[in-house]
């Protein structure tokens, strides 16, 4: 059976050191792995940062990525959410043309997608919307009809459902 190109969401816990982002991102670049999105922040423990990386590739590529990441001295743990029930979320800020005559329409769309209008001018809205990558893609498509002036997305963040966590106590993926 041919391996399909697939997207995987992985979480990488790293020591919160200067340069650790460069090390991790550099690894993807030089081993020829594709990063679809990358999001980094500190965790409840200030000495640990958490990266959520969406990567493209088949099962073998993912295995190599995981193993190579684990080789980095500052990487504490790599968790792959592909086979796990996990919540994945992404946020977007969308600055869209919103002249008076279309405002109601846009507000309805925002409502349906459970977004919020967080800034308004005589010509534009800034819309904040959170959800899966799919949902963000859809609202973006719909708003494109009115003219999107600017768009920014955070990249996916993920967490396993239930009591499972990605913290140190868990088992490493390898």
């Amino acid at each position: 059976m041919a391996q399909l190109q697939q997207q995987h969401t992985i979480t990488v816990l790293v020591e919160n050191h200067p340069g650790v982002l460069a090390r991790t991102a550099g690894l993807f670049a030089r081993r020829g792995f594709n990063i679809e999105s990358l999001s980094v922040s500190v965790t409840d423990k200030p000495e640990i940062s958490r990266m959520t990386i969406v990567v493209g590739g088949d099962h073998r590529v993912l295995e190599q990525i995981t193993k190579q990441l684990n080789k980095l001295v500052e990487v504490i743990k790599v968790v792959d959410y592909t086979e796990t029930a996990a919540v994945e979320r992404e946020m977007a800020l969308i600055k869209v043309n919103a002249e008076a005559n279309v405002r109601t329409e846009i507000m309805q769309i925002v409502d349906i997608f459970r977004g919020r209008i967080i800034d308004m001018s005589d010509k534009t809205f800034i819309i904040e919307v959170t959800g899966s990558t799919d949902k963000l893609d859809k609202i973006t498509d719909l708003l494109a009809a009115y003219g999107i002036r600017e768009l920014v997305r955070t990249g996916v963040i993920a967490m396993a459902r239930g009591a499972k966590t990605a913290n140190r106590a868990g088992r490493d993926v390898d």
Binding site: E63, Q64, K67, Q68, K71, D174
Partner: peptide, 10 residues
Amino acid sequence: DPAEIGKVIQ
């Protein structure tokens, strides 16, 4: 090195 396992040949 676990990363060598399966890198080229399974």
